[in-house]
Nucleic acid binder design. Structure first.
Lengths: 326, 326
DNA sequence: TTGAAAGCGCTAACAC
DNA sequence: GTGTTAGCGCTTTCAA
């Protein structure tokens, strides 16, 4: 546990002031090439590593970007996180991943902790539709980008998917094979869910179908929820011919329930959103709309970086178009 | 973006020194109850939040615990991370989750970054069997706990599962239904893989079977790897009657390959380790050994906390027993 | 272009 | 039990 070498040690060895070493390290200001070389030699020789806490304290901002995610094991968010990581590391920041477990309380705790930690930015995929701690974070000068879901009552950078249009396209696809199409939706407090319901309705109307033809079951974006909702659909007389499932995770429950009922893909067609977890649908019986999840992450990273760089940044909302149906 | 209130603001309002406020905040030393009350009032009134960077700089250690995980979307590690989080948050630390993506380079980058960040501790689930950066981290005084896999050539706190014994039990279970039992193993550079192979062999010997009865295919702990390995097993004459699969993820590939071959659970029995991802095996045709994955996390958290508290801590290796076969 | 020196916000000796 | 003060390691004026 040898004492770590610090800036002044490097300065001493190189025969310059700490200010010069700092300038070489940051590379913004001009330094005499000969001095810079001496500094770089000393840096390497002493295996210098800079103390990011001290740097952050002085700069009133650390090199941490926090990502608060409702469920890191959902492959959709795993993709998003990879995208974030790529963008963030490239810019020399470090991504701090926080799993809120769909719990607004935990979400808020992490938000506060990140602010206390002087995080340079926070990427938030909110569990609910409101986040009290967010206003304080913004107030403290931390840059925030909200992803995946829209948040009420705050003016903040946001990146979301074109949920309404995506659901409309997917529903239309299901309708084209004929029959009645039901919808298992997520919790309506989530903007993703209400938008997808809207898209589903729009597709129905475009096919000359009215309110009486809508079959919507509100569920909760979990495997168990999907399973239960599918069970209720199977009890209907007549049974629907197809179902639009509100997210990838519920699809697992739906597939399982359908398999238990002994139905084949021709009997009950399924439409959902990718990425479908862990190759759960090897035979590709589900029509999935490709989501640009990785891109959601990279765009969010770009937005955060832009906001950090640009002092007077005006919040924007970016809507990413869905991909193909496969 | 109002200026954040700092300790000295609180001290002024409460009419005490900054030292007293600090003492109240940390709660270790004794403070006059009346003063403490005034401080707490001021704290609340000003909505004071402490700057963790400054605190960390002074204490030469931040309140961050880093967790470097090969694949956060593997439900085994998701469980582990939950366990870690529980233990770490309880002690007032914050867990920084880093996804190394099975890439030793990324793993090393994160290790260095965490040291630069003055992390109080690092929990490492190594991608390989060696980690050059680890020695430097320990040298810098950062507490490290290695989990899941054994690392060569370093004396460090370690928490692993009883892999040999678990594999032995599972193989024995498969042997009891008769027939020949094959093994799809992980990469032998991983201690988990070599230990499970050892357990598999031991069970065979205990059943009076020799080397000639061993059928081992080395794979790589991925879905695709499991799929390919199972394909090779199916070509064998005679075909094995059962297979011990080296981890949960490969089991997905195996299940898929088996389904494609049109085999039923009676034709080819499968043994593996939980947690099986995303309810991929709804009919419970796979015999799984329950892994105490959550506990792996909590124990690692305890170890880290103990090491941080105890200046002169001697590294230990903890082996957690497997659970039941279900 | 470079160096001296102040100071980010906090904690920990030390003196009272 | 409390306050004064030095200083953690870095960046950033400011003056030279």
């Amino acid at each position: 546990m040898s004492k770590r070498t610090k800036l002044s040690d490097v300065a001493e060895v190189a025969g310059v002031s700490t200010a010069t070493v700092s300038r070489v390290l940051n590379g913004n200001e001009r330094v005499d090439p000969e001095l810079a070389d001496r500094v770089r030699t000393a840096l390497a020789e002493l295996k210098y590593r800079r103390n990011r806490l001290a740097r952050g304290l002085r700069q009133r901002s650390s090199s941490l970007i926090g990502a608060i995610i409702p469920d890191v094991s959902n492959p959709f968010f795993t993709d998003v996180v990879r995208g974030l990581e790529d963008g963030v590391r490239e810019a020399g920041f470090m991504l701090v991943l926080c799993n809120s477990d769909e719990d607004p309380q935990k979400e808020n705790d992490y938000l506060e902790l990140l602010v206390d930690q002087q995080a340079a930015g926070i990427v938030l995929a909110p569990a609910g539709s409101r986040t009290p701690g967010l206003a304080e974070a913004l107030d403290a000068g931390v840059r925030v980008v909200v992803i995946d879901r829209l948040l009420e009552g705050v003016n903040v950078d946001t990146v979301v998917l074109a949920n309404t249009e995506g659901a409309r396209a997917l529903t239309t696809h299901l309708l084209e094979s004929g029959g009645r199409v039901a919808h298992i939706s997520g919790p309506m407090r989530a903007s993703t869910a209400s938008e997808r319901v809207e898209g589903y309705r729009r597709a129905l109307r475009e096919h000359g179908l009215g309110r009486r033809d809508e079959i919507i079951i509100e569920s909760d974006y979990t495997v168990e929820g999907g399973y239960a909702a599918m069970g209720r659909l199977l009890e209907l007389q007549p049974r629907p011919d197809a179902v639009l499932v509100g997210n990838n995770v519920m699809t697992l429950g739906v597939l399982r329930r359908v398999a238990e009922a002994g139905l084949r893909p021709e009997d009950l067609r399924i439409g959902s959103f990718d990425p479908v977890p862990w190759g759960a649908d090897p035979d590709r019986t589900v029509a999935v709309l490709e989501h640009p999840s990785h891109q959601l992450g990279t765009v969010a990273a770009e937005l955060i970086m832009a906001a950090i760089a640009d002092e007077s940044h005006t919040p924007h909302t970016v809507v990413l178009p869905s991909g193909e149906i496969v």
